[in-house]
Design a protein around this nucleic acid. Structure first.
Length: 413
DNA sequence: TGTCCACTGGAAGGGAGGGCTT
DNA sequence: AAGCCCTCCCTTCCAGTGGACA
């Protein structure tokens, strides 16, 4: 009998060897339809090569409009220009505030980037803020150059930790003698500057650049360029790229989404043993992406949020509508009781509900019932069957497999 | 028009878990 | 070991609120 892998090895892949081009993390040599933005930013940052602090820049745009790609692209170009023309030290430090989301960790990352051979490494927690600030200033100043700090998703940082950190980075320039720091902030939210102190705002917004969403034609160009490199000739049916672009354009012109869609369509076709990628594969890919997103979001939820989400789903399965916070809390307490977990307080649960709302797992609208109070009305935003299945994969919750919620206000389990 | 319900969401603070300094 | 400081998760307290109802 032949080896089980033979049948797959024999078959020629639909991808070329450069499949990684179809991952959003890949940074291409050119970014179509972003030439203006690139030139604008380059024009501003070029002063760094002369050893002077460039203006701070704030970049706005929805997800998948190429903000991060452009900024990384500029970083690569800047560093290679510096090797040829640079009259002084230039460093380009990219931080994603999704993970680096406190004043402490931002300063820690900057400081440790310039750590000398004999210096003490700044620990990820433990030091008082002013100490970490002074240490970071010392390291950066000693290095003697122009630092450009890119704060991707800076709106998240500010929402979570306030604008103190931005003030601190700006303030570094007042206390350093040799080095300079410029900020490039990237935000999904246009109105995030409302959260900023007026002084911080004006200094941070010296330059403001808005990335508008790609339209379907632009997405097509992007996809075509990448498909040419990553997918073998003649594999894509004519309409495939158009459809991927159209779907992504509907979802506010998200290029990342378009690229994922194309790659997964080809993967599905390949697994099917098809010779060509068809519209049908794209539709299957669209479903798969949606489900994967949901599954990932649910799996990473904390235990109590999972219980709450299960409560929302069970409630809907039980045929109940207009589920309120108070009712959900009762259901939740019963579920907790069933698996011997002590329930959180009402207040905390209210926050967890809001969190899941912003994750898009549930819809929670504040609604007033007049005399009967004001509360959130909650419904699941995900398919019940799949959602439940994923939640019950958690071993702590296995005992809730048969839990039910009646459509009357009375509960039975 | 005022009342009152069932919350919402801000503020403050506790304490566990991480780390450093002395 | 004791004393700090940090973040994260959570509780406690409470002022504020939209709109049906009397």
């Amino acid at each position: 009998m032949e080896n089980v892998f033979e049948q797959y090895i024999r078959k020629q892949s639909l991808f070329t060897e450069s499949r990684d081009v179809l991952y959003p993390s890949y940074l291409p040599d050119s970014l179509p339809h972003r030439e203006n933005e690139i030139n604008r930013i380059a024009e501003i940052l070029v002063t760094a090569l002369y050893g002077e602090k460039p203006s701070n820049i704030l970049i706005f745009g929805k997800t998948g409009t190429g903000k991060t790609a452009v900024v990384r692209y500029i970083g690569r170009e800047l560093m290679s220009a510096q090797k040829v023309h640079g009259k002084s030290n230039v460093e380009y430090l990219y931080l994603n505030c999704d993970t680096v989301d406190t004043s402490y960790s931002v300063l820690q990352n900057i400081g440790n980037h310039f750590i000398g051979e004999w210096d003490k490494k700044i620990p990820f927690t433990g030091w008082p803020i002013d100490k970490i600030f002074n240490t970071t200033v010392e390291y950066v100043d000693r290095w003697n150059g122009v630092l450009i700090v890119v704060l991707d998703e800076v709106d998240k940082l500010v929402a979570k930790s306030g604008d103190d950190i931005l003030y601190k980075i700006l303030h570094m320039n007042d206390v350093m003698e040799n080095s300079r720091v410029g900020i490039v902030g990237i935000s999904n939210e246009l109105n995030f500057t409302d959260l900023l102190d007026a002084r911080v705002k004006s200094r941070l917004m010296e330059e403001k650049i808005i990335f508008s969403p790609y339209n379907a034609f632009q997405l097509e160009d992007i996809l075509r360029e990448r498909a040419e490199i990553a997918i073998r000739d003649g594999v894509l049916e004519d309409e495939v790229i158009k459809l991927c672009a159209a779907i992504a354009a509907q979802e506010h012109g998200d290029a990342r989404r378009a690229i994922d869609l194309l790659r997964i369509s080809v993967e599905i076709a390949e697994r099917d043993g098809a010779e060509k990628v068809t519209e049908q594969h794209v539709k299957m890919a669209k479903n798969k992406i949606e489900l994967d997103c949901i599954a990932e979001a649910i799996k990473t939820l904390p235990l109590h949020s999972k219980i709450l989400l299960l409560g929302v789903i069970l409630s809907e399965e039980g045929g109940r509508d207009n589920l309120t916070t108070g009712e959900l809390y009762d259901i939740y307490r019963n579920l907790c009781h069933k698996i011997s977990v002590s329930p959180l307080t009402h207040r905390r649960v209210s926050d967890l509900i809001s969190d899941m709302d912003s994750l898009g797992l549930i819809n929670a609208r504040v609604r007033s019932f007049g005399r009967y109070g004001r509360t959130k009305v909650i419904e699941p935003a995900i398919p019940a069957y799949e959602g439940k299945k994923i939640i019950l994969e958690d071993e702590f919750l296995a005992d809730l497999k048969n839990a039910r919620v009646a459509n009357q206000k009375k509960l039975f389990f």
